[in-house]
Design a binder for these strands. Sequence first.
DNA 1: GTCTATACAGGGATAGAC
DNA 2: GTCTATCCCTGTATAGAC
Lengths: 207, 207
Amino acid sequence: MNAEPDTSPSTTAPIRSRPGRRYAKGEQRRQEILERTIEVVAERGVEGTTLRAIAEAIGFTHAAITRYFADREELFLAVLQEADQRGAAELAESRSASDFATRAAQISLRAPGLMALYNAMTSRALEPGNVASRSHFQERHTRLVEEITTTLRTGQEAGVIRRDIDPSVTAALLLGAADGLSVQQLLQPGDSFEAAMTLLDTLIAAP
Amino acid sequence: MNAEPDTSPSTTAPIRSRPGRRYAKGEQRRQEILERTIEVVAERGVEGTTLRAIAEAIGFTHAAITRYFADREELFLAVLQEADQRGAAELAESRSASDFATRAAQISLRAPGLMALYNAMTSRALEPGNVASRSHFQERHTRLVEEITTTLRTGQEAGVIRRDIDPSVTAALLLGAADGLSVQQLLQPGDSFEAAMTLLDTLIAAP
DNA sequence: GTCTATACAGGGATAGAC
DNA sequence: GTCTATCCCTGTATAGAC
């Protein structure tokens, strides 16, 4: 989007000596840190997930983590990215657009701490001067909107989605609704999430 | 909702010696702290809004703030509550339901740091064991859903809102969409917020 | 390459002086 | 009612052991 020229798409602030996956042990450690982190988040919340707490869960010193991730922000972003990638396959099976959005949210809801982390990082991305997180979420959002837009267009051609609505605006609506409703769902669990997304589904369906 | 018996509706953890508005000076100080806080948030972001930074903006020591607010969490919550009350009047003028949701979001968007603070606090409310923030947002959500539901029902009776949709589910959808889309709007400013809410408006309008 | 030890600046919270 | 002093906890940086 409006990000400055950045040649490294995935990692924002690359560690000096991260070998391109050459050392098996290092890569393994990296994965372990990612997995433990989300566990600690689920147990102690995002705020309680200090570098020392993660390190302790592994049997480490907190300083060691900085070998793999420049700072806490980068670590958290990596956790979200990992979760995104794992969910990507499942997401690709979506049949309808709201099905897509619903799956996206539900994947997050499955892993206890993930949605909390996602929200915490989103709110940090809104902070002034946080280019790393902001561009991450901007890219993510742009990508998701494009995917949903394509699905919607296909649906319109197939005659299952109303033809009098703009696909990309509808995509933004679906994604926004899924995001907002899943927060709501976590705040007070109930069936409003399902119901609301289903309603949206019928609203955009061809008459 | 599922909140524990709580006799104090507005303030979650009352200060030991808050006199029921008896001391003008104290009340004035409290207001000043609230106003400065939102200013500091706008300038330095939520993370940068330390008790010391707020105190410095007033000409205080950070410890003095704890006379008026038990901790930072309570202070932030009070800022949001203040903003809610100020926006309430404007909100009451809403004609349609999505107009309501749109206004609610736009009021937040007007004050630079407010939406960031709102999101930061929402994400904290998702943390385990944070009863204070969680119940605040639960109550807020319940209240807003009820108000929108009423507006919707009136619209249905007047024939401007489709009659085949459930008012409360629709209210949840509107609120969720407004929340999710406003984050999106802050992340990358554009006109997708307006467009998407307008779309939702037409979707729920009577044919 | 990987990790420990250690130091540092800055945060929230609190006790007690005035 | 406000301040000073202090506590313990963060993330971060660096030096050096292995």
